[in-house]
């Protein structure tokens, strides 16, 4: 799995950081998401899929799925 993040779309709602904190964080100055691990390990995949599904801005895409 590879996490592709479309930064200009992100509205910093933080759903990704809440659901998959090992893979997403938020930038201190404006809350925009940061991908901590673009090729997350197996055990994170479910959480990352859920984060991508609920991201309100559709800013997270998963390749290699």
């Amino acid at each position: 799995m590879r996490v592709e993040f479309d930064e200009p779309k992100c509205v910093a709602a933080g759903q990704c950081a809440m659901i998959a904190p090992a893979v997403f964080d938020q930038r201190d100055e404006d809350g925009v998401a940061i991908v901590l691990d673009a090729t997350p390990p197996e055990e994170e995949h479910d959480a990352v899929r859920e984060a991508a599904a609920v991201c309100p801005a559709a800013a997270i895409r998963l390749a290699g799925e």
């Binding site: 779309k9 509205v11 910093a12 950081a17 938020q26 809350g31």
Partner: peptide, 19 residues
């Protein structure tokens, strides 16, 4: 609407982020 919305929202987001 985006992109203006995105710019404005980034100025008020920080205090409401998860951490």
């Amino acid at each position: 609407d985006p992109p203006e919305h995105t710019r404005l929202r980034r100025t008020v987001n920080a205090p409401f982020m998860v951490k």
